[in-house]
Write a protein that binds this DNA or RNA. Sequence first.
DNA 1: CAGTATCCCGCTGGATACTG
DNA 2: CAGTATCCAGCGGGATACTG
Lengths: 127, 127
Amino acid sequence: MMIQYKTKPTAEACLASINAVRDALYVLNGKWKMPLIIALVNGPKRFKDIQRSLQDITPKVLSKELRDLEMNEFVERKVFDTVPVTVLYELTPYADTLGPILEALRAWGTEHRQRIVESRRSEPVAV
Amino acid sequence: MMIQYKTKPTAEACLASINAVRDALYVLNGKWKMPLIIALVNGPKRFKDIQRSLQDITPKVLSKELRDLEMNEFVERKVFDTVPVTVLYELTPYADTLGPILEALRAWGTEHRQRIVESRRSEPVAV
DNA sequence: CAGTATCCCGCTGGATACTG
DNA sequence: CAGTATCCAGCGGGATACTG
């Protein structure tokens, strides 16, 4: 059984789970948000450094994703008055509450990749 | 700290985490896949019943999502030779490995909704 | 460095209607 | 019931170029 219920699962409990997951996905949607948060786990980073961490994200998209994360209070933007200007992006304490989600995704993704690789190995080679 | 590392986190470990999460998101992407899986947690369901569980999903989209989940071996489609035909969709054991992800999303989504509701309460009412 | 400005393509996914 | 067919809007998101 996937989700452990204290009591026998009712249709209402199931619906509540579905809606809770939809709420979560609503703010974590898209290709980049969760990887981006992970990129900031080890401490604040600059715009360009995040771009490097995420490999092939374009500045437009990164900018938009960072704004989204700011609006949802996952990320704080800090500007330093240097020349040229320095900007740091830092996770908020609220972002830390995403820990279990990210860890579960990381663990599963690792296993999943392994599974794919192994199934490829046992298949006839397609040329 | 969001993700617990056995040793001091290196840039490589961070990159590995990012890629693992990206792998996971690749097969779980979109608005419906995870809610759909939850809808099947309590046992196999028929097409129409899934549609009802997910409220406003259209048959076209549901059909496509189910095919995607079948391809990734999360769901098995079983046809029964009744009149009219009966089709059941059932989770595979592999879908069960998603348990921690879904539970983490459910728990976080529940808290998050609560947080939003509370912050709304303390704000001036916008008319 | 830290972004913005344009352009644009493809996919997601909704509306509606129809079929075996 | 269990879908498919068509049509279509929106936007996620990439490419490229440019700015303070």
